[in-house]
Design a protein around this nucleic acid. Sequence first.
DNA 1: CTGAAAGCGCTTACAG
DNA 2: CTGAAAGCGCTTACAG
Lengths: 347, 347
Amino acid sequence: MRTTLPGRPKPTLATVATQAGVSAPTVSKVVNGRDDVAPETRARILAALEQLGYQSPLQRRAATEGVTVVEVVMDVLDSAYTTQVLNGILQFAAVEDVDIMVSVTGRPEPGRRSPERRAQRMLDEGRAGMIVVTSAFSEAQLQAFQRRRIPVVVIDPLNPPSSDVVSVGATNWAGGKAATEHLLELGHRRIAYIGGIERAECNQARLHGYMAALTARGVPVDPQYIVSGGRFRRDSGVAGLKALLGLENRPTAIFAGSDSIALGVLGEAAHHGLRVPGDISLIGFDGTIQGEESVPALTSVAQPLEEMGRAALRSLLRQARGEVLDSHRVELATQVIVRESTAPPAG
Amino acid sequence: MRTTLPGRPKPTLATVATQAGVSAPTVSKVVNGRDDVAPETRARILAALEQLGYQSPLQRRAATEGVTVVEVVMDVLDSAYTTQVLNGILQFAAVEDVDIMVSVTGRPEPGRRSPERRAQRMLDEGRAGMIVVTSAFSEAQLQAFQRRRIPVVVIDPLNPPSSDVVSVGATNWAGGKAATEHLLELGHRRIAYIGGIERAECNQARLHGYMAALTARGVPVDPQYIVSGGRFRRDSGVAGLKALLGLENRPTAIFAGSDSIALGVLGEAAHHGLRVPGDISLIGFDGTIQGEESVPALTSVAQPLEEMGRAALRSLLRQARGEVLDSHRVELATQVIVRESTAPPAG
DNA sequence: CTGAAAGCGCTTACAG
DNA sequence: CTGAAAGCGCTTACAG
C-alpha cells in the first residue's frame, strides 16, 4: 500500500540527500542503520526521509506489486475470543487478497522481537500494518509505530485508547447494562458480578453498566456481590462462585465478565449440586461458540467478534491507503442472546 | 532458506548471460517476463537461470536476511482442534524465529489463490514452505509443490497420506481402541460409536479401533450402534444421540469421534433429561480445552494438538534446510484422559 | 530479436 | 564523520 503521491516523483536517495543537504552515501548509511553518522546529520536525514516518504527498493517493489502483509499480534491463541476475532480477520483478508502474518508474544522481551525491531522489519518488508490483540505493547510503543507511518489498530484495548491510536471494541458499558437488565426483568434482585482483569477498561465498563442498571431500578449496589476474578478465565469463575456461596445472603443470579468465567461458574455450580438456571441464573459476556455449545447453553452478551476482526482489518487498510478515518474508535454493538442459563428466581 | 551453495558466488544476470551465451539485457527480459525474446534463446536462458540458481535482488535479500515465512493453510478457524494446532505452530515459530502466514480457504478456487499461484508466490517471496490443515488440496496438488521444491507438511490428512507427502497425525486406531477399552473396563457392553466424516482415514481408524476392542473382549459388533454423523461437529452428536435413543436396546455408553460430537451428545442428552454419566457414559476424541471445560468435564482421547503443530513445523524446517527426514509420517501418541463423563453402567 | 551504450539507484572503499 | 569516485546489478532506449 503506502502509495507514492501522484504527481510527485518517487523519492530516491539522491532526492533525499539534496533535501537534507548531504551526499547520497551518507543517506545510504542512515537508511542502513550504520552508526558512523553525526547525530545532527542523522536527525536532518531522518526528517527528510520522513517528509519525502522515502521507500527502499524492496518496499517500492512490494508497493507496486501490491504485496500486502498485515501482521496480527496476540498473546496466545487459547481462547474462543481470540480465535473468533482472528477468524474474522482471516475471512476478510481472503476477500481483500491481503496476507496475514500471525505472531504470538508471551511477555515482550528485548531483542529481535521488540517493537523497535518489529517496526524496522515491517518497514523493510513493506508490510501494510499491524493489528494488536494483546496488551504487550505500551501506549508509547504503539505511538512509535504510528510515527513511523505504520498503521496500527488495537482490538478491545485493556487500557483506555488514546486518541492517537485507532482501536476497535464493543459497547461494553451498554452490554453490562443490558445483561443486568435482563436479570432484573426476570425478577432477580440479588445479582452478582464476577469480573476479569480489574484495571481493564472493558471490565470497568461492564461493571459500571451493571451498577447503572441496578441503580436505575432502585436496587442498591452491594459490594459483597462484586467479585474480582483477576483474569477473564475459567478459574475466575470457579473462585468467584466459591466466594459468593460463602455469603449469608447468596445471589440468585450472576453476571460473569466473560464466557470463560461463566463456564467456570457452571462447572463449579455442578460440583455444589446447584442447577443452572434452576437454583441460580447465569449470564456471560462475549457470545463465544464455547458458551453456545455448553450445557446448559449459556445466555450471554454477544460481541460481534468476527465482525470486530473484519472492522479492524478494514480500518487498517484504509489507513494504509492514506484515507482519512471517520473516527479513531469504533465500537460495535453488543447484544443479549438469551439461551438456557437464565430464568426467573426460584420461589 | 534456499541458501546459495558455499564457494560458488551468487549468480548475477551477467553470470547467467555468459552461461547462456547472450547479453545481460536479454536475460533481464526473460526474468521480467517480456515476450520479445526468441523461443530458443528463452529456453537456453531459462535453463541457465535454473542451473545457476539465479535469484532476483528481492529473493536474495530475503534469503540472506534469513526471512523465513511458513504458510499455514486451513479451511476455517472455527474449532478448538484447529485453534490448538495453530497455537502449537505459533509457539514454536516464536522460538525458531520463523514468521507464520495464515490463510483460510473455503473451496479452492481458480485464479490467484490457486495452488499454482500460491506456489509461484512462495517461490518469489522466498518462503520456507507450507503446513496444510485442510483437505482443500488434492494429492496431486501437494506433489506439485514438492516438485517445485517447496516443502509441505500435512496435518492429520483426511485421506491416507501417500509416501511422497510428509504428514503428521495421531494414533487414531490405538486411540479408538483405548477409548472403547476404557468403557469396557467400566462394565459397559452396549457401546455405540458416533463417527465424523465417514471416508476420512482418521474416522475409519477410530472406528476400527473401537471394533477391535469389542472383538478382543468377545463383545459382538452391533451395526445399529455404529452411527455416522457425517461431520466431526456438534450437530452429528445431536443427530447421533437421537438415532440411538430410538433403539429398542439403548446403548449405555457412547464413544464420540470428536469432542465436538461429544458436546452435541451432551447437549441433546440434557434435553432428554438424561444424566451423563448417570444414565449414559460418554467419551470424546481430541482432548480439546472445550471438552475439558464442559459440564460434566468430558472424558476424552487426547491428541497432543499443540505438539502436532510443533512437530509439523519442525519437520517442515528440516525439509527446508535440506535435512533428510527419518520418516514421512509422524504419529503422535493419544491418551485417554478420564474426567467426569464416564462411569460404570447404572444398575 | 539482440546487444552496445547509457543510465539509474544504491553501496563500497577510502582519502581527507 | 563526510563525500568524491568507482563500482555493482539491473534496466532502458534504440540502432542494427
